[in-house]
């Protein structure tokens, strides 16, 4: 029995590893589902880079959450994903509204598209309004100068990757967004959230159902050893960080590299190449 058990254990180890590597090969087989060039703005180094106890290097898929709300992720979209909005009928059970479970779906990330243009216009509009606000006494001049600097840095360094859609069928999403150089389709976790919105007419709050993207499931992307060279040279005070739109900087922050990222048949990414950028901004 002992010899049989040992053999079964060894075969199990080999079989599981073969299965996993076969899945990797399948993902990377044929033409990539999408290939996209992203810069350090969208692919900064992940936290704990070169931490003493971990020499592994990863990049973070830094997508712009802006204010964390998406108008397109409404009740109809949630119903399309399979969320049951009947729990809104439990009018007495407010505490349960916030416990709706997340589901796995596919998220469409748009690169340098309409969402980025809209974001850019919002920032520029706010910059344009600052002198008026100072003139009307609604803002101090130095506060306006700081705010202008924040917005200009955001335009220069913020991620241009925005979530624009979700769906359960990745192939259907790709049919809707066929440009593989500008639209990524990647697995994500989403959940329904309820916000209580006051109704000005009768001053009574009403529940408003909307969706929220909790996380992209392959947000952290491993960098193979052969691509470490450029990343090893990065000065730490010039690096960009994920999720940070404004850097209280002295102008040192800049974009150092661009990454060719492939997405495979299972919508799992890998780094194809990393190229250095010289003084892009």
């Amino acid at each position: 029995m002992k010899r049989h058990g040992l053999v079964i254990a060894l075969l199990l180890l080999l079989a599981i590893n073969a299965f996993v590597l076969a899945g990797v090969a399948l993902n990377r087989s044929g033409t990539p589902e999408a290939t996209i060039m992203l810069t350090e703005r969208e692919q900064p180094l992940a936290y704990n880079y070169r931490h003493d106890e971990n020499t592994g290097v990863s990049l973070r898929l830094n997508w712009n959450k802006h204010n964390g709300e998406w108008d397109w992720f409404d009740n109809d979209k949630l119903t399309e994903l399979g969320f049951d909005d009947n729990f809104l009928n439990f009018a007495e059970h407010r505490d349960r509204y916030y416990r709706a479970l997340p589901i796995k779906t596919y998220v469409v990330l748009e690169y340098e598209g309409r969402a980025w243009e809209a974001y850019r216009e919002d920032q520029l509009e706010e910059i344009a309004k600052l002198p008026t606000q100072v003139a009307k006494g609604k803002m101090e001049q130095d506060a306006a100068d700081r705010r202008k600097k924040e917005l200009e840095v955001s335009l220069r360094l913020a991620s241009r990757l925005f979530a624009v859609d979700v769906g359960a069928d990745a192939a259907a999403l790709r049919n809707r967004y066929p440009e593989t150089e500008h639209y990524l389709i990647t697995p994500g976790q989403v959940r329904a959230v309820v916000n209580w919105v006051s109704n000005k007419d009768n001053e009574k709050s009403e529940p408003k159902l909307s969706g929220r993207i909790d996380q992209i499931l392959t947000e952290t992307i491993h960098v193979p050893r052969q691509h470490h060279t450029i990343l090893e040279k990065l000065p730490s005070d010039e690096r960009l960080y994920a999720g940070n739109h404004y850097y209280n900087n002295d102008g040192k922050k800049r974009v150092h590299y661009q990454v060719r990222l492939n997405f495979g048949q299972r919508y799992e990414p890998w780094v194809e190449s990393i190229e250095e950028l010289q003084d892009l901004f």
């Binding site: 199990l12 180890l13 996993v20 899945g23 990863s58 499931l217 392959t218 952290t220 299972r266 799992e268």
Partner: peptide, 20 residues
């Protein structure tokens, strides 16, 4: 073994690792 293979190849996490 399985955790780091998942990191290296950016595999979408599933519960199947537990059964292995």
């Amino acid at each position: 073994n399985l955790s780091v293979l998942g990191i290296i190849f950016n595999i979408t996490p599933t519960q199947n690792a537990f059964i292995a």
